[in-house]
């Protein structure tokens, strides 16, 4: 437990028959950090998490948590771990209270019930309702309590906020940050939404099609975040003018159709873009978060058929991959 590294994987590989789950995954999560594990659906996030928790068995490679082998010492690891699965299943005829009490009883250490009650109050969750009567969001809240109430050293959260409304999402991340500040636990947070992870994570890794493609810290991460800008111009002719006046880095993903234009912009470029639009004049404007696929297309030269880094085989990162090349910084 005195290891400075919480999670370490070395060439971790999982194949489901002939289908690749993950391949040669090298990951290093420091103790006490919030680590975002990003990737689109089907990238291998859940496979990685299930390997770490010994719910599935590796094909090859090594994985340790707090220095313990994830397969041989899985019980020791799970005593110090709380987990929210991506596909959260419940005993539908049970109440939230019974579910939580049963699952907390399976730890060797006692879980303070008052903490669970407080969290239920924070999330405005009625623990005495049967699970089948709860909405998806409320079920997810039970999952959040399952992760946040036990006094453990590691939280593994697989898409913990899916199905939650924005207000509850904020409550959840607030509670998560509070838990981290109070206990100093390590948090491994998987998501496919970059903008959510960047609110809390110290480091992120990005996984795509079973390969790790990037590890970045918070400042680098913020540069990764793109905005999708859609603008309705005053006239179709303004599209051409806009394209000519756009800074070079914004023209790559610029498309115009009639008087409608759209582009991907880095946050740092938003101010100059808005000034330009103000100068030109526009009828409507919509700025939204981009998807991870947009980011892959922008930074990693990913083709529609999927391979990262052009047609070359996707690279595998090393434990030192934080220092590895970051094409988007150039």
């Amino acid at each position: 437990m005195n290891e400075p590294i919480a999670i370490q994987t070395s060439n971790l590989t999982k194949y489901y028959g002939k289908n690749r789950g993950i391949e040669n995954l090298n990951l290093e999560v420091q103790k006490g950090e919030i680590f975002g594990f990003l990737g689109p659906n089907g990238a291998g996030k859940t496979t990685t998490i299930r390997l770490l928790l010994d719910l599935i068995r590796k094909t090859s490679g090594e994985a340790t948590i707090f220095g313990y082998d994830t397969q041989k010492d899985s019980q020791k690891i799970r005593e110090q771990t709380a987990y929210i699965p991506g596909e959260l299943g419940f005993y539908k005829d049970w109440t939230g209270r019974r579910t939580l009490q049963y699952l907390f009883k399976l730890y060797n250490h006692a879980v303070k019930w008052t903490v669970a009650e407080e969290l239920a109050q924070t999330f405005k969750l009625n623990l005495d309702k049967k699970v089948r009567e709860l909405s998806k969001g409320n079920k997810q809240k039970i999952g959040a309590i399952l992760a946040l109430a036990p006094d453990v050293d590691l939280l593994i959260l697989d898409e913990p906020t899916s199905g939650l409304d924005p207000l509850v999402k904020n409550e959840f991340y607030k509670a998560l940050s509070q838990k981290h500040a109070e206990s100093g636990c390590t948090i491994f947070l998987s998501s496919h939404v970059l903008q959510e992870v960047e609110k809390v994570a110290h480091h992120v890794s990005i996984i795509r099609q079973g390969f790790l493609v990037e590890v970045a810290d918070l400042s680098q991460l913020k540069r990764l975040a793109l905005k999708h800008v859609e603008v309705l111009l005053a006239s179709p002719a303004d599209g051409k003018v806009l394209k000519e006046k756009l800074p070079k880095q914004l023209t790559k993903n610029f498309t115009v159709e009639g008087s409608r234009a759209s582009l991907l912009a880095n946050r740092e470029d938003l101010t100059s873009l808005l000034s330009l639009l103000q100068e030109l004049g526009f009828r409507d404007l919509n700025i939204s978060d981009s998807t991870l696929e947009d980011i892959f297309l922008e930074y990693y030269d990913v083709k529609a058929n999927g391979k990262a880094f052009g047609d070359k085989k996707a690279p595998t990162s090393t434990p030192n991959s934080r220092k590895a090349k970051r094409r988007w910084l150039k």
Binding site: D54, L55, P85, E87, L88, G89, K92, L106, Y107
Partner: peptide, 12 residues
């Protein structure tokens, strides 16, 4: 029903 994940992710 995926309930087994909740149980087997505990020290059982």
């Amino acid at each position: 029903n995926n309930t087994i994940d909740l149980v087997l992710s505990k020290p059982v």
